[in-house]
Design a protein around this nucleic acid. Structure first.
Lengths: 233, 233
DNA sequence: CGTAACCTTGATTAAGATCAATTCTCGTGG
DNA sequence: CCACGAGAATTGATCTTAATCAAGGTTACG
């Protein structure tokens, strides 16, 4: 792996070359397969990660075994920074564990590990890196706030419509009809939206019957973006 | 107001005196009454706030008028930092608006405004402040993650039990029976827990019938902490 | 006092979860 | 290349939870 990948990581974008070479020195690259566990929420904290290629899910399991996905981590995003950054100012202890579970969703997923102690040192001596972190964390906070809003203020149909509309933003084509490809299984999507596969399936069906979308495997053809927005959201 | 109050703000704790006097220079103090609006989510962003005394709620309103409380801000906590910090690195634009609504819940609430532009300058030239921000933001991120976990993985009874148990932590007394005072109306508590007053009332009633708690106005007598944990959570 | 906001209680309804049964899809080994 | 089996997805029937609707009761405060 070369420095280019580091530069693409949003949390690190716009740093100078000196910073990058320092980061290069301390990070460790791994290639993983679908289904691999990166960490459990019981494991001692070793550092945070960045996804270079592939897809990772961060999830929690409730007492009765139900799983809820907190984040889907796409390339060039980082995860599990919080325990590190929250305690960087203080003496760093070994008692921390990861805040959730992380599992790989695609084959040939490449991740970078940033070991905790070394990264803290770097951060404390580098104010531009520090400013970057402030910005990156704030962005994450905003996303999380949005997520809470979505799951508390919208019903399932609204959440699904919202999800589809967001996906549309990324790959915009002709204005009133386009296709999106689900990056995850419908099971996982259901969990991410705070529901179960059966309900998601029924919701898709209802939208299909309303003539708004048409679903084929992991491909969704959005027939009427406007109606999607107006009718459900 | 004196510097002591600034030092008590968690986001700023442990800075040196030079930092405090600089912060003092730029911040503005206000005293507000119950029901006052601090900002709406439509207003242009002016800076972030710290609560010195009293209580503030941060909330969103859904399309059909339902309100959901995202945070309750207690003294020495800050709110609305995200838009500022997220964009500190870039040129600061005036197009931002606040991410949610903020309303005062108690009379004689004192808040501090940190004007955006001035604070950004300060932050960019002060690495210890910057490190503090990283830690503070991370903590917030953790709280939010916890909140998501709570509202997605637990039913209402579980959320209420969870809330009570958390309050118990703060004012711990004898181990198996104690009282807590609700800092907010039951309406607001319901909204914070992602439900409505009727359901909250019924949940309290059920817990009372089970002999676990006893509610009198804003005072809750927890009769059996253990049962609360084991039976509902 | 009197009025408004807050709280409680009951009856009803609706949304979504659960349970159960099939079908579909796809990767693997014969 | 086909067959098999496992996981994924769909569908239907039923049940549970919590929201809604409606009506009193209580509290706080001018």
């Amino acid at each position: 792996m070369d420095c280019t990948e580091l530069k693409n990581i949003y949390l690190f974008s716009g740093l100078n070359d000196n910073d990058y070479s320092k980061l290069m020195e301390i990070c460790k690259c791994k290639t993983l397969s679908k289904g691999d566990i990166i960490f459990f929420d019981t494991e001692p904290y070793a550092g945070f990660y960045a996804v270079i290629k592939g897809l990772v899910k961060i999830y929690k399991v409730s007492k009765d075994g139900r799983e809820h996905i907190l984040h889907l981590v796409y390339p060039y995003n980082t995860f599990a920074e919080v325990p590190l950054l929250e305690n960087a100012g203080k003496i760093f202890s070994k008692d921390f564990s990861y805040p959730a579970n992380a599992k790989v969703l695609e084959d040939d997923t490449e991740i970078l590990l940033m070991p905790a102690r070394q990264f803290v040192k770097l951060m404390q001596n580098d104010s531009s890196l520090c400013l970057k972190l402030v910005a990156g964390l704030s962005q994450r906070l905003r996303h999380l706030n949005k997520h809470i809003e979505d799951i508390t203020l919208k019903d399932i149909t609204g959440r699904v419509a919202n999800y589809i509309l967001n996906e549309c933003k990324h790959n915009k084509q002709s204005d009133n009809s386009l296709t999106i490809a689900l990056p995850i299984s419908k099971n996982d999507l259901a969990s991410y939206l705070g529901t179960i596969p059966e309900t998601l399936s029924r919701t898709f069906k209802k939208m299909h019957d309303d003539g708004v979308i048409s679903v084929n495997g992991k491909t969704i053809l959005v027939k009427n973006v406007n109606k999607l927005r107006v009718a459900y959201l």
